[in-house]
C-alpha cells in the first residue's frame, strides 16, 4: 500500500511530508529501538509510541521510509526537523499500537517477521 493509504486507514495526520505515493510493503511496531535494530529487516514503516529523536535515527539506519507515532502523542519540533533532513515521512495517529497494527495488517500490510 502507499503512504497515502496508510494515512487513510489510520486516519493519520501528516507531520512531515514526502513522496506520499511511496510503496510500503512491510512494517513493524515497537517502542524499543534496540529490538528494531536487532530484529527488523527490510521493513519500510515503523509504528511506535516512543517520542524522541532516536526513533528517526533508528529509522534512518534501517533505511525506513515512514514513521507512524501512535496514541496521538504530541511530537516535538526537533523530531520533525530531523525527519525532514533525513527524508523520512512522519505520521501521527490517535489509534493505539495494537489497533494501528491490526488495521494495517487487515489492509494488507505484513511484517515478514521470522519466528524465533
Amino acid at each position: 500500500m502507499t503512504v497515502n493509504e496508510v494515512v487513510r486507514i489510520l486516519n493519520a495526520t501528516v507531520l512531515v511530508e514526502g513522496d506520499m505515493e511511496t510503496e510500503i510493503k512491510t512494517a513493524c511496531g515497537s517502542d524499543m529501538m534496540s529490538d528494531v535494530l536487532a530484529f527488523v529487516k527490510d521493513q519500510a514503516l515503523l509504528l511506535t509510541g516512543l517520542c524522541n529523536p532516536q526513533v528517526i535515527r533508528t529509522a534512518e539506519m534501517m533505511d525506513m521510509r515512514c514513521v507512524v507515532f501512535v496514541r496521538g502523542k504530541d511530537i516535538d519540533e526537533s523530531i520533525k526537523n530531523l525527519a525532514r533532513t533525513r527524508d523520512i515521512i512522519v505520521l501521527k495517529t490517535g489509534y493505539r499500537m495494537f489497533t494501528a497494527c491490526g488495521l494495517l495488517f487487515a489492509g494488507g500490510l505484513r511484517g515478514e517477521c521470522e519466528e524465533k
Binding site: M32, M33, A38, L50, V55, T58
Partner: peptide, 27 residues
C-alpha cells in the same frame, strides 16, 4: 548475551538498553 543489560530504567524509557547492543554489533 542477548538480553543481558546493565542499563538503568531511564535508558529503557528512551527505547534502548534491551541487552541487544553488543550482540547486534557482532551480528
Amino acid at each position: 548475551q542477548e538480553g543481558w543489560s546493565t542499563a538503568p530504567d531511564n535508558v529503557r524509557n528512551l527505547g534502548f538498553g534491551a541487552g541487544m547492543g553488543l550482540p547486534n554489533i557482532k551480528k
